[in-house]
Design a protein around this nucleic acid. Structure first.
Length: 496
RNA sequence: GCCCUCAUCGUCUAGGGGACCAGGACGUAGCCCUUUCAAGGCUAAGACCGGGGUUCGAAUCCCCGUGAGGGCACCA
């Protein structure tokens, strides 16, 4: 039975790298008809942020990554929040102590910090120097009697080597001299990640651990913990790290990220949502980074990826997120949407940006919108000309932007004047009338006899935008009065 | 400093000894189409980190370099 877990710590929000880890775990569980479990690792009180659990769950829900067991839905192995399982960890820390696999350490945080800094300065081994491991029973008793606070440390093996069997990388051998006497139980009585994840994975019967590459170095410790406790360990697969798009360092959730041009880049799943990306596109995108759908196929619904997903096929190399590709992919997913679905998706986005647009009006422009949007929020810029007057945003474009080799200044002026007259006289002002009239004007006025160059200039004149719905529709949407006013100001500008 | 991981076009990747003068995608450039945008179509430039082996044959296996990254917390 496949049982996998996604185990974030509630420090804020769902990070894109975390989402990728969650997605792979989820795909693996679904592929094998197993369970996907959400577990909250909140054993660090200081870093725990209120509302973070909800935020993380919202992110997962938005992506459609449903969990079978978790803090909200419960399950037979609960509770799924580590701070509620404190007694269990203490029990096993005591067991390790009683059986000689762990010891009490009375070094204070300040002392450790000092010694670590000294070791670093001397370019030496920075891990714990095992001072308290040598303490005699009498010395320990004396310190305890004195009421000194302590932590419980693992008595790591010092000889030999530990082999981590990794599905993606094969066996990884680490000399045991590298395994630190890690803290298992902190002085506040809560466990560290090392103890908590081993105890929980055991009792929750987790079969496979798919987690990021950065955990490789603590895997030997975990393996030795399993051995000490006499438990079988899960199967490990260390996922490639998601790098900063600049290529410098991992994409951290504790620092802002920038691409190689110095532009800040999105890292929170909620930011992707708010920026108008589609969850289907994000899943599609994430699935193809580190893993590949195969068959040279780039666009696919995640459901189709599930039956093809295999851990062994994951590429071990660390990777940057190709953000440009996400834009393209989202554009592709938008093009596949039904106009009605797109209109429904775009309406709340525009509302959030302060524009209430009728459902019908939106549905009318949806087909034109579809092929032009890279993401939902682009609709605002695309339709901006409709609101420009209220916001005072419309400014007649500079004359030289209207003019080109195929449309000299004189021709532009004549054409726009003719268009102005046509719009003023059109009865009714509809797409059919405009289409016929304006095309004719364009063909008569351009150097190459084609309407294109003129209609482009007209688009710019009337909307102030390079990209807009088709000109005819745009003029109709704008209404006669506003269209004429804009044309007048533009024509005046050319004549200067 | 010590340990570990990784290494194919700018980027994401396919490739698991001969099917590779290395395929796809994004991005970039050009052309076509067109309501000068977008979308679409076509085309182009663009990579096996270096050096040694193994082999009849290596992008693929091994070793050594080099580079990049991770870890060495009472954080996860």
């Amino acid at each position: 039975m496949v049982r996998v877990r996604f185990a974030p710590s509630p420090t804020g929000y769902l990070h894109i790298g975390g989402a990728r880890t969650a997605l792979y775990n989820w795909m693996f569980a679904r592929r094998h008809g197993g369970q996907f479990i959400l577990r909250i690792e909140d054993t660090d009180q200081k870093r725990t942020v209120k509302g973070a659990i909800e935020a993380i769950m919202d992110g997962l829900r938005w992506l459609g990554l449903d969990w079978d067991e978790g803090p909200d839905v419960g399950g037979p192995y609960g509770p799924y929040i580590q701070s509620r399982r404190a007694a269990l960890y203490r029990e096993w820390a005591d067991w390790l102590l009683d059986n000689g696999y762990a010891y009490k350490c009375f070094c204070t945080a300040d002392e450790l910090k000092e010694r670590r800094a000294a070791a670093k300065a001397a370019r030496g081994d920075q891990s714990y120097d095992r001072r308290c491991r040598m303490l005699s029973a009498a010395e320990v008793a004396a310190r305890e009697a004195g009421g000194l606070p302590y932590v419980v440390r693992f008595k790591a093996p010092t000889e030999g080597a530990t082999v981590i069997p990794d599905v993606i990388r094969g066996d990884i051998t680490v000399p045991n001299s590298q395994i630190a006497d890690a803290v298992l139980l902190k002085s506040d009585g809560l466990p560290t990640y090392h103890l908590a994840n081993v105890v929980d994975d055991h009792f929750m019967e987790i079969s496979h651990i798919l987690r990021a590459d950065e955990w490789i170095s603590s895997a030997p410790l975990h393996l030795n913990l399993y051995a000490a406790l006499g438990w079988a360990h899960p199967i490990y697969a260390h996922l490639p790290l998601v790098l900063n798009p600049s290529g410098k360092g991992k994409l951290s959730k504790r620092a802002q990220a920038f691409d190689d041009q110095g532009r800040q880049v999105l890292v929170k799943v909620e930011e992707f949502r708010d920026a108008g990306y589609l969850p289907q596109a994000l899943n599609n995108f994430l699935a193809n980074v580190g893993w590949s759908f195969g068959g040279d196929r780039e666009i696919f619904p995640i459901e189709e990826a599930i039956p093809r997903f295999a851990i062994e096929d994951i590429n071990p190399a660390p990777t940057r997120l190709p953000y440009d590709k996400l834009d393209w992919l989202t554009g592709q997913w938008i093009q596949m949407m039904e106009p009605l679905a797109l209109a429904r998706a775009v309406r709340p986005v525009l509302a959030r940006q302060g524009h209430e647009v009728g459902a019908e009006a939106l549905l009318a422009v949806a087909p034109a919108l579809k092929v032009r949007l890279k993401k939902l929020t682009d609709a605002e810029a695309f339709l901006r000309f409709l609101w420009d007057d209220e916001t005072g945003g419309f400014a007649a474009p500079a004359a030289d932007r209207l003019v080109s080799a195929k449309l000299p200044a004189d021709a532009a002026r004549r054409g726009l004047q003719a268009a102005r007259d046509l719009i003023a006289a059109a009865q009714p002002l509809d797409v059919a009338t405009l289409s016929a009239g304006l095309t004719a004007i364009g063909e008569s006025v351009t150097a190459n006899g084609k309407a294109g160059p003129f209609l482009g200039a007209l688009r710019l004149a009337v909307t102030g935008q390079d990209v807009s719905p088709p000109v005819y529709e745009s003029i109709v949407a704008l209404g006669r009065a506003r269209a004429l006013a804009r044309l007048d100001s533009v024509i005046a500008k050319i004549e200067e």
